[in-house]
Design a protein around this nucleic acid. Sequence first.
DNA 1: GCGGACTCTCTTTTT
DNA 2: GAGAGTCCGC
Length: 696
Amino acid sequence: MADLNSAQQAAAEAGNGPQLILAGAGSGKTRTIVHRIGHLISHRGIAPHRILAVTFTNKAAAELKARLSQLIGDDGGGVVSGTFHAISLRLLRRYAEALGYPRSFQVIDADDQKALVKRILKQANIASDRLHPSYLRGWIEHCKHAGQTAEQAPACDWNGVDLRGLYHTYQQQLREHERMDFSDLILNCVVLMREHAGIAEALQRSFDHVLVDEYQDTNPVQHEWLTLLCTGHRNLTVVGDDDQSIYGWRGADIRHILEFERIWSGAGTHRLEENYRSTAAILDLANAVICKNEDRHDKCLRPTQEQGVPPQWKVCNDEYDEARKIAVQLNAWCDMGYAWQEMAILYRSNRQSLALEQILRESSLPYRIVGGVGFFERLEIKDALAYWALLNRCGDGLQLLRICNRPKRGIGTKGQEQLAALLSASGLRAHEWLDVVADGKAGGAAGKLVPIARLIVSLRDEIGNMPDRGLMELLERSGYLQSLQAMGEIEAAGRIDNLHTLQRYIELTMEQELTPVEFMDRAALLQSGEEDSRDNENTVTLMSLHRAKGLEFDCVILPGVEEGLLPHQRSLDDGEAGIAEERRLLYVGITRARRQLLLTTARLRRLFGETHYPLPSRFIKDMSPAILQHDMPTPQPMQDESEAGMGIGSSVCHPSFGEGVITDFEGAGDAIRVTVQFRKAGIKRLMLKYAALQAV
DNA sequence: GCGGACTCTCTTTTT
DNA sequence: GAGAGTCCGC
């Protein structure tokens, strides 16, 4: 406890009952939560396995475990910790049968989920311009986040389509495939507790204390999950920062943290406002941005570090110019003695990584991109896992259909439909049915599967009880590896490389004596790169702002601080709430930085083959040049600035060119010539005297 | 059923 | 501008 300041200590030692810990960015949140767990164990005599610690990401869960082992040793002493999804899945494995699912059900990933929704719409003869698959998927997700099953969902008519009915069909199909989607993991846990008092009581009795990290990002169904679990002892400790709530689109409701004290009567509240991470200059900027938001717990980050150098804002010509300026800055930081791994580029949209990647590669700067297509989402990995699951007697129909024609075995759409029907009629699990196929007794299109079925069945005998064996042989002898070659040599080499990585991963994981089903769970829940060995490599990190939550770097660059990108175009539809969340996103980005911070804006940005002329983000206005150094060629104010209310960065309106922003000027008096970046008309240089510009 | 060429869409963030 | 979807001839 000696490591803690008084606020942290009070939070860590707080007594029973609901506790709200409002922890600003960089205020030692994880340290406090770890010490609270340590305190519960060593001072209050709570058994470690009766403490449940919930996080949102696998990375945060791993971090928590590591810090716990550091503090109390012994592998964290048996504290139960994991993401909402991982813990839910663990519970469902035990109780799935109460929901009418076999215990061996699998998780469906985003890709297969999308394909399923499409198939349902096709079967129902609904064209995508009438109801878009992604809209339906989104609507169903939305219901699930709100805790509504297909029966409880509100009736909703969309262009004459009954959405609730389709939700129902979707759930039926999932059930037929013995699959749950990500949201089901949480919702089904809640349903389990709602409908089975016995199970609910058993779960409530399993834990004495529940702690939740990043509480600002809980959605209603997660809230109910916690409520059901903590009914009785009410020992719920939540840690979070309403200013960092950035998952509204995933159903997160910021009111859970704003109104915690009302929802949980008698709750203790603790505020951690001392920031140990960033320089005072960076915190000034962060505070200036976030204090403009209205619905928030009133608090302010207090610096403990030195003043530091002022953050900078650079305006660039286009995304390539931006990337080049970024490369120059990274090199400059390197010369100052910062390591590459202490630098990060955090963007709003993953698409922004394209130009950055290109320029960084040309500049021979070491970088790595976090995010994008995850390891377990790759085509060859999904194929291989499908083979592996069938080999290890846990593969389902979706997996059989996935590999039935890879490599080509002459089974097209019709053949696959027939296979699905045959499998369903057999009443067997897909992996069991393979035995029938191998005997040549399945008939129809299954005839084409006889060789592969025989291969699998014979390999099963060979590997016996060793799930880490046989995969590569199966891929080789089935002709799968050969079929990859059709993609071209280089591409195939990369994919085969991935398959070897998978093989190593299987061997490594199987040392922990997991069952094949448990292994598949891990693959389903694990995001790529999170626990990658590449974490240790000395490279600049590129990732989305969302992914950066919870991380910190000495040097941070936030590219694309523009209208349309930050705030994002799509967020504007949500009005004030949308803008507020975008502002928090910028706040999260700023507070990732310890020492150095650079914001950039491009005057021209090409997106989807179209050219845009974005204006600087509205948030720039909240960061005065006193706290954000504007990097402009001529930083003096214009003579008539006070009179016309204009200067560099001012938004203006022109009678024919429309809206724009002043990016530069030259000359003086009547001869002032301004450079204006118009939203639609592009860059124009105009005589201020005659241009009839109006300040907006 | 397959493969090639063509068209068309769809572009925020993730467990 | 790329990836997915569709059509068509073999």
